[in-house]
């Protein structure tokens, strides 16, 4: 249940991002990028956020998650590929030394505020 810690950080970042000059701000949407290999369970995260955002401008905000695929690059032959299965050897040259280009993201991209 590290989603609670992740949710805590998300709330801090999102609240900090609300411009000071808005009266009674209300966040409608929280836009996230989550890598497929990041150990984040969506329903756990939304549960944690629901609990933590009560009585804050984030209460009731909709979670919009952009799922990022797992992409790798071979350090030997520079081949780049996307994988749907947990097998990370290079399909071109069988090398095991690979760089993960994407798939581990846990990012807040933006918040959308309601028009007052």
């Amino acid at each position: 249940m590290h989603e609670m810690g992740i949710a805590q950080q998300m709330v801090t970042i999102a609240l900090d991002a609300i411009p000071d000059d808005i009266e009674n701000p209300r966040v409608e949407k929280l836009n996230l990028r989550i890598g497929k290999l990041a150990a984040v369970v969506e329903h756990s995260l939304s549960f944690c956020l629901e609990v933590m955002t009560k009585d804050t401008p984030l209460e009731g905000a909709e979670l919009i998650i952009d799922e990022v695929p797992v992409c790798l690059r071979c350090e030997r032959c520079n081949h780049e590929w996307q994988t749907e299965i947990p097998a990370f050897g290079c399909p071109a040259c069988n090398n095991g030394q690979v760089t993960m280009i994407s798939g581990r993201e846990i990012e807040i991209t933006s918040i959308e505020l309601a028009d007052n």
Binding site: I6, I18, E105, S110, I111, L113
Partner: peptide
């Protein structure tokens, strides 16, 4: 929309 682009 307020752009953030931060790693959590």
């Amino acid at each position: 929309e307020v752009n953030i682009q931060k790693r959590v």
